[in-house]
Every structure is written in C-alpha cells, then in structure tokens.
Computed example of a mutant assay.
Amino acid sequence: MKHLLATLLLATTTVHATDLARLSSVEAKIADKTYKDITSIMVVQDGKTVYEHYFNGSTADTLNDVRSASKSITALLVGAAIDRHLISGVDAPVYDFFPGHKPADPRLAKTTLEDLLTMSSLWECNDENEFSSGNEERMYVSERWLDFALALPVKGFAPWMDKPADSPFGRSFSYCTAGAFVAGAAVERAAGQPLARFAAQVLEQPLGITAVKWNTSPEGIGMGGGGTRYRTRDLAKIGQLVLDDGRWNGRQVISANYIKAMTTPHAQPREDAEYGYLWWHFHFTVDGKDVAAWSMSGNGGNYVLLVPERHLVAVVTSTAYNQRYAHPQSREIISRYILGATTP
C-alpha cells in the first residue's frame, strides 16, 4: 500500500526544475553593463528560493523604491478592507468616502472603487499624456492631492480613442496614478487610520515584513499610488501570498475570492497586456510559447511576477528610473533568464 501511495503521489505532483547555470549567467550581463542599474533578482519556485542575488551595491536589507508597483499593494489593502467589512465592496461609490467633496460633473458621482482599481474611471486623467488635466506630475506640484483628484473633469473621447462600450471588457483604460492615490485614501478613511498602519496590521505583519517605508501626500494622506519601499525578499512574500490565493503559512490573509477578482482581466491597456485590480497581466514569449504572468510593475523596471502554471514568483528590482531601457531590459531578463531557466 505504501508503494502504491508513493506512486500515486509522484504521478500527481508536478516537479519543477531550474537551470541555475542559465539563470546565473545573467550576472555577467549585469557586470558588463549590458543590463544597467539592476539591483536584485530573486526567484522562488514551489515556495522555495532557487536564486537570489544582489547587484550594484544593493543588499538583502536594501529598501527598494518600487514606484508604481506600490499600486498593487493598494489593491490588496482594498481587499483587506472589504474582508473586514470596512468597505462594502469594489462597487462602493468613491465620493461617499469624502463627503466634503463634490464631483466636477454629476456623472462622476457614480465613480466606484472598481473604476479606480481598473484605471477606467471617467476622470480626465492620463499619466501618459502630458497635457492631461490629471497627469500625475500636475498632482505632485499641487498642495492638496485629494482636492486635485476629486475635482478632475470628465474626460472626452477623441475620434481615435475607444469609448467604454467599444473597449475590451467594457472599460476604456487610462493610466491614472491619482486614481490609485484616491483608492488608498478611501481605505484610509474607511479604516480610520493611516494607510501605512493599516498595511502593517493586515498585510505586512502577517507576512513577517518588518522593514518598509510608505510615503504621504503634502496633506498627510498615505500615497497608495507609488514610492513604497520594500526589501526584495518581502516583495517575494507578497508575490507568494497572491500566488497562493491569499494564504500565508496556512493563514488566509486576504480572501481567495478577492484575490481571484483582483487577478482577473477587467481592462486592456494595450494589445499585449490585460489589467486586473492594479495588477498587470503580461505575456512573455519563451521558446516560441506564450507565458502569461500577473505582475506588479513600477518605473525603473521593477517587477514582482507570478506564473501560476509554474508556481513561480520572480522579483526584479532596478533603479533605472525614467530611462527608456528600464522596462525592456527587465522584461528581457524575465523572459530569457528567469522564465527560460524554469520549467512549467
């Protein structure tokens, strides 16, 4: 009977392998500056660390500024607030959290948290358009970020832009950091405490994360839109939490239902990617095959990547902020060295 059970276990358990020689060969490319400003790479498969290396003066204790990858943390905090019944759900109206603010247009009163989480609200807010009223750089130089965001006008749709009804998933995507900031501010209002403190209680402490830095806006509101700093190992923990449907060491930290909704495509930013709740769904070509992965992503080429079919978590941190090569080189490292060295 023991032999039969062992045979059945082997037949039903997927065994993953890692080509460490191929994976570690990236180190020479970082050393000769083929890949610039990379500070760490970590790969966890089947819950075990198979590769961890630091570069360019970074160490395991370095707090990496992951910029917009922080938005994905904010999405998890929204889930934690919903789990605790502090927020009714992603369909909660945004302006209800801020009764002292009225929308610039009555149509905006219907804006929900889900609209912000999917970057598909009707606010005229586009970080990729320097002329946009809601461009994040305009927010940063204002005195009160919340006032700035909640007063944004309704966006129009130029002839070359897809309206929501004509867009995949029925949502017209527009990358808006101000929206992620407001989502974090809503969590702060609902929880009745600073965003950083809530994050520590519901996410970081359960995962054993003890070193982190959160930013705040000029008026003291937690910055859920970017700039949070974490150690590489702690970023991997967050990735593993999501990969394991919100569980960590047998404890349900974030509900599985919310994790499923968060990592379901709700909008399409471009032809080669989908978007969940402040999480990207990227596609990589590896050995001629498409490998889909959910990802946190931030300026400078910072990534926390999840590949469910490989039970894989990968972290790439970089300080190539505002450099054109930042994201292409990180994505090449992911596809060529990380995904290329691990098996499905």
Score class of each variant (00 low, 15 high):
Ala60Asp: 10
Ala165Phe: 13
Asp127Gly: 02
Leu86Ile: 06
Cys125Lys: 06
Ile41Cys: 04
Ile38Cys: 01
Asp19Ser: 02
Tyr337Val: 05
Asp290His: 01
Lys2Glu: 14
Thr177Cys: 03
Trp280Ala: 09
Thr7Cys: 05
Trp248Arg: 10
Asp32Asn: 09
Gly227Lys: 02
Thr18Cys: 08
Thr263Gly: 06
Gly301Phe: 00
Thr62Met: 10
Thr12Ala: 09
Leu10His: 08
Trp248His: 14
Met119Val: 13
Lys36Arg: 08
Arg229Gly: 04
Val90Asn: 05
Pro164Glu: 11
Glu114Asp: 13
Thr216Lys: 13
Gly156Pro: 10
Leu8Met: 10
Lys163Pro: 00
Phe169Asn: 00
Ser25Asp: 14
Lys289Gln: 14
Thr118Pro: 05
Thr228Leu: 05
Glu188Trp: 00
Arg247Met: 15
Leu203Ala: 14
Asn322Leu: 04
Ala149Ser: 13
Ala31Asn: 12
Tyr275Ile: 11
Val66Ala: 05
Asn126Leu: 03
Gly47Thr: 13
Leu203Thr: 07
Glu128Phe: 14
Thr118Ala: 05
Gly100Thr: 11
Pro99Lys: 02
Pro265Asp: 06
Arg138Cys: 06
Arg324Ile: 07
Val44Arg: 04
Arg270Phe: 14
Ala200Leu: 09
Pro308Ile: 09
Gln201Lys: 08
Ala196Phe: 08
Asp162Thr: 14
Lys33Asn: 15
Gly239Cys: 05
Arg84Cys: 12
Leu86Tyr: 10
Ile73Asp: 00
Leu207Asp: 02
Ala149Gly: 14
Thr13Phe: 10
Ala149Lys: 03
Val307Arg: 03
Gln323Tyr: 00
Lys36Thr: 09
Leu152Gln: 01
Gly179Ile: 04
Leu63Trp: 03
Trp160Gln: 15
Arg251Met: 07
Gly224Pro: 01
Arg336Pro: 15
Val187Trp: 00
Leu10Val: 05
Ala326Ser: 00
Pro194Trp: 11
Trp160Ala: 12
Phe173Thr: 01
Lys260Val: 12
Leu117Gly: 04
Arg229Gln: 07
Arg138Pro: 12
Lys260Phe: 12
Leu23Ala: 04
Val253Phe: 04
Tyr303Leu: 07
Leu195Tyr: 04
Glu137Met: 15
Tyr321Leu: 01
Arg171Thr: 09
Lys71Gly: 06
Lys29His: 08
Val78Gln: 05
Gln252Ile: 07
Thr317Gly: 09
Leu10Pro: 02
Asn129Pro: 10
Trp280Ser: 03
Gly227Leu: 02
Arg231Thr: 05
Thr111Val: 11
Gln45Cys: 12
His281Thr: 08
Tyr51Glu: 07
Gln329Val: 01
Asp162Ala: 14
Tyr35Arg: 09
Lys260Leu: 13
Val44Asp: 00
Gly301Asn: 04
Val313Arg: 02
Ile87Cys: 09
Phe98Arg: 00
Gly184Lys: 03
